[in-house]
């Protein structure tokens, strides 16, 4: 079977069914021998990069699962910086730049621009989008 290069875009929060579907798709893609060029988090999807989500112990913690997945496979998880700033998802550099009291972006994530989405699409066979307004 021919393998494919995927870019994934996630537009919904880690509490959404779309986030769970996207993660399961990403797991299945890698398990099937396919490549994930980049996972781009936009709109409410940026909350997946927050290290400050606290999920009750008997509920799935999608933000943590995303972080573990991205770290374990050395994937390129990119969070749109403009969307993240609007929603209070900041790394150390942005927290300092805007004089905010804390950074909450978990390690393994990069804040960057929308150009990263377009660049990944150009390097992929398929863009698969999850969630949205």
């Amino acid at each position: 079977m021919a393998t494919m290069k995927f870019t994934l875009a996630l537009f919904s929060a880690p509490t959404s069914p779309a986030s769970r579907r996207a993660l399961r798709f990403a797991e299945a893609a890698l398990a099937g021998g396919h490549e994930i060029v980049r996972i781009f988090f936009y709109q409410e999807g940026v909350h997946g990069a927050s290290a400050n989500l606290v999920t009750p112990q008997d509920e799935p913690d999608l933000a943590r699962q995303w972080q573990d997945f991205i770290t374990a496979h050395g994937l390129d998880g990119v969070v749109c910086i403009a969307a993240a700033l609007r929603r209070g998802v900041l790394d150390g550099q942005e927290a300092r730049r805007y004089a905010r009291p804390a950074a909450n972006v978990a390690s393994g994530w990069a804040l960057s621009g929308l150009g990263q989405l377009h660049e990944a699409v150009q390097q992929s066979d398929r863009l698969v989008c999850f969630g949205g307004p």
Partner: peptide, 9 residues
Amino acid sequence: DIVLAGGAF
């Protein structure tokens, strides 16, 4: 914004 960013490329 997605479209405007792509237009720049």
